[in-house]
């Protein structure tokens, strides 16, 4: 169980090789089940369509997690899952149309809701003490960091898109 006792072991979730595969597969399954009612609220899909879509996404996660565990070089599991999702849905794949049909109706915004719910519960007393110690100045700097990064990236992307298209 992760309780952040000191700041030295406060290096969360960056390296996920330590996750036990069976536990992770079980937890992804639980999260997938939680997502079902949320999808029913967010979309016009039938229960069967939601079940099929979520099962398809679960399969993508499972393949990604297996690759993370068993391939000799390390990439974060989310990167593998993303790559598996891309590989399965490339236009030239024989099953691409069928697979995209399964998942295209799934609402991506509703999929992010459980994640943020866990995040709210996971805020620990250590994080609150870091916040109190750093104070409002770090908050202002942090907001400027986010705005600066976002606007910086958007400005470069916009410029390059204008030049190249």
């Amino acid at each position: 169980m992760t309780t952040h006792e000191t700041e030295e072991d406060f290096l969360p979730s960056g390296d996920d090789r330590s996750l036990v595969l069976t536990d992770t597969l079980r937890d992804v399954a639980v999260v997938t089940v939680i997502a079902i009612p949320l999808q029913l609220i967010a979309t016009d899909l039938s229960l069967l369509q939601v079940l099929a879509g979520m099962l398809a996404l679960y399969v993508v996660c499972v393949i990604g997690l297996l690759l993370t565990t068993f391939l000799p070089f390390y990439l974060p599991s989310v990167a593998w899952i993303s790559l598996v999702g891309i590989a399965l849905t490339m236009p030239f794949m024989p099953w691409a149309e069928w697979f995209v049909g399964l998942v295209s109706g799934i609402d991506f915004l509703a999929l992010a809701v459980p994640c943020l719910a866990y995040a709210g519960l996971a805020i620990s007393s250590l994080e609150l003490s870091v916040m109190r110690r750093s104070g409002w100045k770090i908050l202002v700097v942090a907001v400027l960091v986010f705005v600066g990064t976002y606007v910086g990236s958007a400005a470069i992307a916009d410029l390059v898109l204008r030049v190249t298209s």
Binding site: S13, L57, V78, S82, V100, Y118
Partner: peptide, 19 residues
């Protein structure tokens, strides 16, 4: 569980990138 909960979401993103 945060990183676990983001996985189906990331999977959905992947399936949008492919096409």
């Amino acid at each position: 569980l945060i990183v676990v909960a983001i996985m189906p979401f990331i999977a959905k993103f992947g399936t949008t990138i492919g096409p």
